[in-house]
């Protein structure tokens, strides 16, 4: 069983095999993710009761928390892939890191803006420069931008892969800082509601749509990652026979 799994993993790392695999599997992730998000948004907007403190304003949680979670998850995926690519020189791993970056950046942006839209009516402010949670999430956005800018600065893809991989791996230090900032330091931002060791401090009727949204976003992330990877793999392999065969420039 284990050997079978290892063999499948090696096979998956081969670009032509992965290209076909992604093409077959991605749509399912897209459909499931889309359905979960539609259900979660409906539950969050229409079914969940209003909060005893924040009224209907708390419904921003259903778009804020999933994108904030994804902004960090995408970074961990990017950094892990960059690490594997750097150490084992696996081409596909670098392609994964490159493809995860713009997705992560877009969700970091979303987490920041939805957070501001939530902060204004509840806290009384859009932004506080002294708050560790807010600033570390902004640093995450700049890490994504820095990663993409660094890549663009290189002529050769191999060098871009290696240099940007170092930046991605080093930047992973920021992820636990974001998560624990609300515990280590005093912040305006409240502590975690779901990821506590004891029972979540959110009522079940409000939790279910949130979980639907979080799973939906995760599936959607895999879908978008695979779609990005399809293009990225073609580009990186364009000299290879399987790509030339695929596009019909060689018999």
């Amino acid at each position: 069983m284990w050997r079978l799994l290892v063999r499948w993993f090696h096979q998956l790392a081969s670009p032509p095999y992965f290209y076909r695999f992604a093409g077959r599997v991605a749509p399912w992730f897209g459909v499931v993710g889309g359905l979960l998000i539609v259900a979660g948004a409906y539950g969050g907007l229409a079914l969940a009761p209003a909060d005893y403190q924040q009224g209907d304003g708390f419904r921003i949680i259903y778009v804020h928390v999933p994108s904030a979670y994804l902004s960090m998850m995408a970074y961990v995926v990017m950094a892990s892939a960059a690490f594997v690519g750097f150490v084992w020189r696996i081409k596909l791993a670098h392609a994964v890191a490159v493809s995860a970056a713009p997705i992560g950046a877009s969700f970091t942006f979303l987490a920041l803006v939805t957070g501001m839209l939530w902060g204004k009516p509840m806290w009384g402010t859009y932004w506080q420069w002294a708050d560790a949670r807010l600033v570390s999430e902004l640093v995450l956005l700049f890490l994504y931008f820095g990663y993409m800018a660094l890549r663009a600065a290189f002529e050769e893809r191999d060098k871009a892969d290696r240099a940007s991989a170092l930046l991605a791996v080093v930047g992973v230090v920021n992820v636990p800082i974001i998560h624990y900032s609300v515990i280590w330091w005093s912040t305006l931002h409240q502590g975690p509601s779901i990821s506590k060791l004891d029972a979540p401090s959110i009522d079940a009727s409000m939790l279910v749509p949130l979980l639907l949204m979080i799973f939906g976003h995760t599936f959607l992330f895999v879908y978008v990652l695979f779609e990005r990877l399809k293009g990225e793999v073609l580009l990186r392999e364009r000299q290879a026979r399987w790509v030339r065969k695929l596009v019909g420039t060689t018999a």
């Binding site: 924040q54 509840m122 402010t125 509601s193 959110i202 009522d203």
Partner: peptide
Amino acid sequence: EVLAKHDENYMPPEV
């Protein structure tokens, strides 16, 4: 300046 800091508990008013 006065800002409100809310906690991480979310529940409907009845609860």
